[in-house]
């Protein structure tokens, strides 16, 4: 695993600046939580890192070298928000995972690797031939994680991976993220609008608003002593932290 660093990154769509001069570091083997409301640019930042959004200026470095966003070898992998849309309905989950593997492996090696990855995300390897439609949302999201890991990534970007899931399943996916981080020493950029979720998985947190990072630091520090007014607003808005019931 490696260190991912954004240096003065700016992304523009036409006249709107989605990401504005953002510098952010995902240290080796750590999970960095990125919070902010919709439209704050956090997803665009993620998409820029994997080459799905055009970079206006700035750099994205992996261990000091620019991240390749073309060609077969992709050291950055991404898990998408909606597991109902991120898996091809026509492909078996095994094929989806195998597709993301580096080329050159034999058929047998591929199958073994698919089994290993499915096992890693706690899915029965015997179900590699199943179509996404046969799986629950949580299981699909685990397939998506397995696919991201299949590319032997150095850093994984998780974009709101639990927000499309039922709360009962969300817990299992979060547990898995923490477990993978501990087992594989995964570096991860974990994007979420839910502060409680970020607090649970991330060691560092960055708060984004209007395309800029307004505050960053270790999770404990930012949540205990928020400096920026917007961070405080976010914290106050977490449900369950105050009671509004009038009687």
């Amino acid at each position: 695993m490696s260190e991912l660093r954004f240096e003065g990154l700016t992304v523009r769509y036409g006249a709107t600046t989605a990401v504005d001069d953002v510098s952010l570091t995902v240290p080796e083997g750590q999970i960095v939580g990125l919070v902010g409301e919709s439209g704050s640019g956090k997803s665009t930042l993620a998409r820029a890192a994997v080459g799905l959004a055009p970079i206006e200026s700035g750099r994205i470095l992996l261990d000091g070298r620019p991240v390749p966003t073309t060609g077969r070898r992709r050291p950055l992998q991404m898990v998408f928000q909606d597991p109902y849309s991120s898996l091809d309905p026509r492909m078996s989950i095994g094929e989806s995972v195998a597709e993301a593997m580096p080329r050159g492996a034999s058929r047998l090696e591929r199958r073994a690797e698919v089994e290993r990855l499915l096992e890693l995300v706690h899915l029965d390897p015997a179900r590699a031939a199943a179509r996404p439609a046969e799986l629950s949302g949580g299981q699909r999201q685990r397939v998506a994680l397995a696919r991201a890991l299949a590319g032997r990534p150095q850093v994984v970007i998780a974009d709101e991976i639990t927000s499309a899931l039922d709360v009962s399943i969300q817990g299992a996916v979060l547990n898995l993220v923490r477990e993978l981080q501990a087992e594989l020493g995964l570096s991860m950029l974990f994007i979420s609008h839910n502060l409680a979720v970020v607090r649970y998985v991330a060691t560092h947190v960055a708060v984004m608003r209007d395309g800029r990072i307004v505050e960053q630091g270790t999770t404990a520090q930012v949540l205990a002593e928020p400096e920026h007014v917007y961070t405080r607003e976010l914290l106050a808005a977490v449900p369950g932290t105050n009671s509004r019931s009038p009687r």
Binding site: L52, M78, L87
Partner: peptide
């Protein structure tokens, strides 16, 4: 426009 196409792109599929 669907995510699985993006996911394949990110995975380095031509």
């Amino acid at each position: 426009a669907r995510d699985f196409v993006d996911a394949a792109r990110v995975a380095g599929v031509g």
